[in-house]
Simulated assay, not measured.
Amino acid sequence: AGFLVRQAAAEDPMMPLDLFRARNFWAGNLATAFVYAALSLNGFVVGVYLQQGAGLSATLAGLATLPITILMILFSSRVGDLAGRFGPRLFMTVGPIVMAAGALLLLSVGEPFDYWTQVLPGVIAFGLGLTLTVSPLTSAILGAIDTSRSGIASAVNNAISRVAGLIVIAMLATIVGGALDLDGFHRAAVVTAALLAVGGAVSFAGIRNRLPARSDVG
């Protein structure tokens, strides 16, 4: 709160608050807070549970989410092109919802543990949703601000994503109920899905597609 008061009063603020007058900027950053909180929660819980609960090695637990990275490498540029044509709103709405479905698929994790049927489907859905979300999200936020201020706009968005991740990890014990056992893992999956659903709803309600400029030649 003190930081915001200082930024509002400073002649040369580190974070100019007038950036948030742009609709897609504030809506995109609000969606970022929910989506990246979910990403941090899911990444931490899955990595730890696969080692402590499912008994995988650290290497295998890391490789378990590799399909997410592969999907993003393969399709992010294509999604960026489509978002440029049709606008970011649809992608920023559908993407988090698909990720939420992926998080709920992790509720199938149980005993005996099987990665291929219990984890991989959720990981693939999560990767597809993330691929649909990231490029349009970045484009919407930076596109709402004059290019001369794109550096500070990007920095603000990055800071919001990191702070959201820190907050949700700080609340981890409350989310999982004190222990990251199977029940705690399932609770974390539900909270992850809820955060992502809110992120999708914020995007649907707040993001506006930029309309092409009308030609004066008739």
Score class of each variant (00 low, 15 high):
residue 57 S to T: 13
residue 79 V to S: 10
residue 84 G to Q: 02
residue 47 G to W: 06
residue 75 F to L: 09
residue 53 G to F: 03
residue 81 D to L: 05
residue 91 F to S: 05
residue 44 F to A: 09
residue 67 P to Q: 05
residue 51 Q to D: 12
residue 65 T to P: 03
residue 45 V to C: 10
residue 50 L to C: 08
residue 81 D to R: 10
residue 75 F to W: 06
residue 44 F to L: 14
residue 60 L to G: 10
residue 45 V to I: 13
residue 94 V to A: 11
residue 75 F to K: 06
residue 47 G to R: 10
residue 41 L to N: 10
residue 94 V to Q: 04
residue 95 G to P: 09
residue 90 L to R: 15
residue 89 R to K: 15
residue 58 A to K: 10
residue 94 V to H: 03
residue 91 F to A: 05
residue 66 L to C: 13
residue 74 L to F: 08
residue 41 L to C: 11
residue 86 F to G: 13
residue 56 L to D: 03
residue 89 R to I: 12
residue 54 A to E: 03
residue 64 A to C: 08
residue 95 G to W: 00
residue 74 L to G: 11
residue 71 L to Y: 08
residue 68 I to A: 00
residue 56 L to R: 02
residue 49 Y to L: 03
residue 83 A to V: 01
residue 68 I to H: 00
residue 57 S to I: 03
residue 62 G to A: 07
residue 57 S to R: 05
residue 88 P to W: 00
residue 61 A to I: 11
residue 53 G to L: 09
residue 65 T to C: 04
residue 73 I to H: 11
residue 70 I to G: 12
residue 60 L to F: 10
residue 88 P to S: 03
residue 60 L to P: 04
residue 74 L to R: 08
residue 65 T to D: 09
residue 79 V to T: 12
residue 71 L to K: 12
residue 72 M to V: 11
residue 63 L to V: 08
residue 57 S to F: 01
residue 62 G to T: 06
residue 76 S to Y: 03
residue 63 L to D: 04
residue 59 T to I: 05
residue 63 L to H: 08
residue 56 L to N: 07
